[in-house]
Design a protein around this nucleic acid. Sequence first.
DNA 1: TTGCCTCGAGATCA
DNA 2: CTCGAGGCAA
Length: 704
Amino acid sequence: MPARPRTKRATKTKKDLSAADVPESARARVMELSDELRRHDVLYFQSDAPELSDADYDALRRELVALEAEYPSLLAPDSPSQRVGALPAEGFETAPHRSPMLSLDNAMNEDEMRAFEARIVKLLEFPKGGSQRIDLVAEPKLDGSGVELIYTKGRFVQGLTRGNGQTGEDVTVNLQRVPSIPTRLKSDDPPEIASIRGEIVLPLAAFEALNTARVGREQKPFENPRNAAAGSLRQIHNVDFERLGSLEFRGYALAEGRPAEFDRQSEILDLLRDWGFVISPQIGICHGVDEAIHFHERLLSQRGNLPVEIDGTVFKVDRIEQQETLGALARAPRWAIAFKFPPEQAETVLEEIEFQVGRTGALTPVARLRPVRVGGVTVSNASLHNQDEIERKDIRIGDRIVIQRAGDVIPQVVRVRLDRRKEALAEGRRLARRGLPARCPVCESQTVRLEGEAVTRCANLDCPAQLKNNLRHLASRSALDIDGLGEKRVDQLVETGLVAQLSDVFALEEASLTGLERMAEKSATNLIAAIERARQTTLPRLLIALGIRHVGETVAELLTDRFETLEGLLAASPKEVAAIEGIGPTIAESVSRFMADPSNRKELARFGELGVVLAAPRPKSASEETPRQSLEGLTFVLTGTLSRPRGEAKRLIEAAGGKVTGSVSRKTNFVVAGKDPGSKVKKATDLGVEILDEAGLEGLLTDD
DNA sequence: TTGCCTCGAGATCA
DNA sequence: CTCGAGGCAA
């Protein structure tokens, strides 16, 4: 488990040693070790003729790691110590943030900025008539990837992505390669623990250079600096050091470790700079909202000349004391706001309006666009929400339209260039209106629009489009979580008629799957196994899986808490459902209607007939779990000659809840080596995967 | 919604 | 080598 001994060892060094302080003997030994390890890597990977035992190899490697830790200047970017073996076994580990990494509220225009100021003035309860204004620190809002860096006693020990705000991915090994992240804080008296937050960006010049290099190597250039930066952080194998070396970290907050005498955000920025971090140079202090708006406009005018991409201005209340008074909501602090630049717009041709059929049968118009770059990505689709929207904006096929990415993500049609219609016609585009289809585009059934509703629906409950969406939903994470049942597989299953109603997934057999496109033995087995696992589920998951309108995680839990079993729910009267705290009339109606429907009841019964079992609401304790599933979640690889046929060994493992795969990867937990094992054992030792002999396997199977 | 990364497995070629 | 799935970020 050589996860990261480097940083731990390093804390023992008394002070940073510049290159000159490194004893010649150490330098020589590092070179020697590196050469030796590299030679062995080649022997091992390319000629399969290793000279060193794995233990010896490991020892050399450890020695190298230790030396590099002691003399960081000797750590070459291409050192064999940086190879994959140094990485965590399974992707990146996740780790909790020291305090939640919140996001920021947005202001899209001046009014919202003024509202922000008004809100804080009110909350801070300034004495009437006082001339106090609020000092706001202004910083560019960098368009990159947010990270948290942890320093203990001034040493960089851990770096996390933002993740969900509570927990992030530990990308320390990659961040250690970013030049602007100091290994040590420049401070005589660093805090015990400091948490620095900031943005990882890829400066435009580096982005261009990187892409030129990539094109030269016949690699695909990156679409935009932000994705290139975020992607760089998540590299695991064959890590491209050039990429990491071109990243830049810019600090903007100190979430922990603030010395008491620093009581303003502006001072913290200075402190971070003193500690050795890069701080955006375009920092200002604004006294009141008018200055803030002015700052924002000036920054916008400089935008094109800046070395990094930005998408707005962040304003923070300068005084920490005031920040603390204001506090934070669940999602974002009340003392800061991101004033966004107007979204980039682009013009393109609307080539077609299609209608998608959703899970409930609702027909949603989607604009198919001539692909156009906007905000760093190529957009070719945009939702049009509903028919009213199309009519209000008078959108017609063939129109030139203006699009933008709302909230930076969802593309939307802003308006039609009505003034360009003449030209459009001249170019032969037909400018047809697209009305709501009378028949479903997928199954050709009648469509209906209920009185007072905005949406039109396909009336056919068995419409394949609805079935596909329902099936996708059933297989999704929060529902039955069936691995390997993605969009394409769902399409196949429905189109071949293998699944005509939801419960059919549980009637699938391996034999009927093989023969489908890209569905050979292994995939079929895996899918069947995933479905088998899904048979044992819980009532809330099943309720979610059914796709009852308005029933998500929360409602499913509420229903389960109240009725405990499916039978209980089926027997419940609409009144009882409606009486549940947290369930209003709309939801109650939807649930009761579903449960009363005879075909739904039949379908539910069929789930049971096909082996779907609901576990008790909450397992009392872990000790009550069935001991037979002892290998749950473990992956095995078999190699060499075993005393029983492979197939049988495989069955035994699977019966105990384990998984058997063909090749060794970091996801493999155990390699079972029989007589005359193959190269898999070598690979396993290299990846640090545990190797079992047959006795060891027997032990696992019979034990506990 | 798009782009990036990883993984397992299928398809293809030698 | 290519594809599908899954996860993550904005």
